[in-house]
Simulated assay, not measured.
Amino acid sequence: MHVFFQHSTDIWRDFPELVPAALYTEGITATVSPDARIAAHAERAAARLATASEGELPEIQAWRRTFTRMGLKPTQYRCASEALLRRFRKEGSLPRLHPLIDLCNAVSIAHAVPIAVFDVSRITSYVEVGYAAGDETYLTFGGDTEQPPAGEVIFADAAGRAHARRWTNRQSGHSAVRDTTSNVLIVAEALHDTAAKDVESLLATLTDELSTLWPVTPKSAILTPDAPRFEFPGR
């Protein structure tokens, strides 16, 4: 059974500058040590933060403008990469959760681009980034259930689950990577002027890191309005 990831036609219409990348891989385990690779990406992030705050980076500024367009206060609701960069700048490191998440977080701060990682076994049929109907459910990491309001940009599946809220602001605990996770969908999205080049670089970096650490053979694509769907094996 194949499942797929895509953005709705409404999202492509409203945000034509969007450049998303999707990657699928099998064979992830929690037993590798990505410390050396994380350190290299953290060094790159630190070098950028030495000359500008996270809010001054073009990648983050583009997401702030997008959040404003969605009716959200960008300093109250931050995209995931800004939140990580902000924490990294203040604390000098990021919390360790799982080797894959730790790696993706490090790549995210190095490129200042939000990266989402989903356990494919927890996805029903597809994931689409689009405007909420208002009847979807969202499970927090704390175990609480929320209902995103109609019109909010969410990652939704066929079961009406929201796997992320406010687009790139917050992922769901339902499809979070855990020690038993094997097959994952990874999504990176950018909207800044050099997004096409930068997302391609991010995707190449992530593919190389995954193949080196596990090793696995990822499948990936950069999506466009003409080719918006990324298909991959189900659970």
Rank of each mutant, 00 (worst) to 15 (best):
V3I: 15
F4E: 12
F5P: 05
Q6F: 08
H7W: 13
T9H: 13
R13W: 02
P16M: 01
P20Q: 12
A22N: 04
Y24P: 09
A30H: 10
T31A: 14
A36E: 15
A42V: 04
R44P: 02
A45Y: 00
A47L: 12
L49E: 05
T51Q: 13
A52Y: 03
G55T: 08
E56F: 06
L57H: 11
L57E: 05
E59N: 07
W63N: 04
W63V: 03
R64A: 11
R65M: 07
T66A: 14
F67S: 01
F67L: 10
P74V: 00
Y77C: 01
R78L: 14
S81G: 09
E82F: 00
L85E: 02
L100Q: 06
L100V: 11
I109Q: 00
A112Y: 02
V117C: 10
V120S: 00
R122T: 10
V127D: 08
Y131L: 13
Y131R: 14
Y138R: 06
T140L: 02
E146H: 10
E146C: 09
E146W: 14
A156C: 14
A159V: 04
A159P: 01
R161E: 08
A162I: 06
A164F: 02
T168E: 13
S172A: 14
R178K: 15
S182Y: 05
V184Q: 04
A188P: 04
A190M: 03
A195Y: 02
E200G: 11
L203N: 07
A204P: 03
L213S: 07
W214E: 06
V216D: 07
I222H: 03
L223W: 05
T224Q: 10
R229G: 06
F230G: 06
R235D: 14
